[in-house]
């Protein structure tokens, strides 16, 4: 047996198609994580203890259990009590809610890092709490949360490979299927790695670009 990369070539269109599904799952999961993460972050900084507790519980629970276990619970466990998702939806929800526990902490940290005087100044101008959040706090906080968010987006995209075990037909799923049929693991995994790398590198560059766009008004150096 030897290494023969050409065996992969005829599968490339199928791999790219699977990569497209990876992208779809990841983008939707990232959106879910941003929305849920923002809500959980707001719970955590709210003055109501019950909301703080819910937020703590969510973050500790979701962050403390392996993603693989959670995907199994959603796809194989929940149908037992009558809740069924197809593999795609289960993947998006599993990845999204999992990442949300990290995203919530990123948002909370960057909101709390904004000096309190900003909120006071906004309130003293007659803004409501939510108006002040919208106009003054969040625009600054989001800018500061971009670098760690970028990390989280990349992690989420890579985590999507775990969804292969719940039969989502994404890149890792296709890769292992073609690899075992042809008994060419190294070749297919190598190509899959390259495709994953291109996707994560693109995210990384996009986040850098957004950071530069949003860094108006900031001091250029420390």
């Amino acid at each position: 047996m030897q290494f023969d990369i050409t065996i992969v070539f005829e599968y490339i269109p199928f791999l790219l198609e699977a990569a497209l599904l990876t992208i779809e799952i990841s983008i939707l999961a990232i959106l879910v994580s941003i929305i849920v993460g923002l809500i959980i972050a707001f719970f955590k900084i709210s003055k109501f203890r019950i909301l703080q507790k819910i937020s703590d519980f969510y973050i500790e629970m979701i962050r403390g259990v392996p993603l693989l276990v959670q995907l199994y619970v959603i796809y194989f466990g929940l149908p037992q009590i009558g809740i069924e998702f197809d593999a795609f939806t289960a993947s998006v929800l599993g990845l999204g809610f999992y990442a949300a526990s990290y995203v919530a902490e990123i948002f909370r940290g960057s909101i709390q890092a904004i000096p309190f005087g900003q909120m006071e100044a906004a309130r003293s101008l007659g803004m409501s709490y939510f108006k002040a959040m919208e106009k003054v706090i969040l625009p600054q906080a989001l800018r500061h949360s971009l670098p760690p968010l970028g990390n989280q987006f990349i992690i989420t995209l890579k985590n999507s490979s775990l969804c292969s075990v719940i039969t989502a037909n994404e890149l890792m799923h296709s890769t292992s299927r073609f690899a075992s049929v042809n008994f060419a693991f190294l070749e297919f995994l190598l190509v899959a790695s390259v495709i994953y790398f291109v996707m994560t590198f693109t995210i990384s560059k996009l986040v850098n670009l957004m950071e530069r766009k949003l860094s108006v008004g900031e001091r250029r150096s420390l």
Binding site: P115, G117, E120, A121, A122, L125, K131, V136, G217, E218
Partner: peptide, 25 residues
């Protein structure tokens, strides 16, 4: 109110700082 630490909004220009509340509030 005017604060000791100014508390201007760093992500807005001078003009935007002044306009944000009259317009949005």
């Amino acid at each position: 109110m005017v604060f000791q630490q100014f508390n201007l909004f760093p992500h807005m220009t001078v003009l935007e700082n002044i306009m944000v509340s009259p317009v949005s509030v």
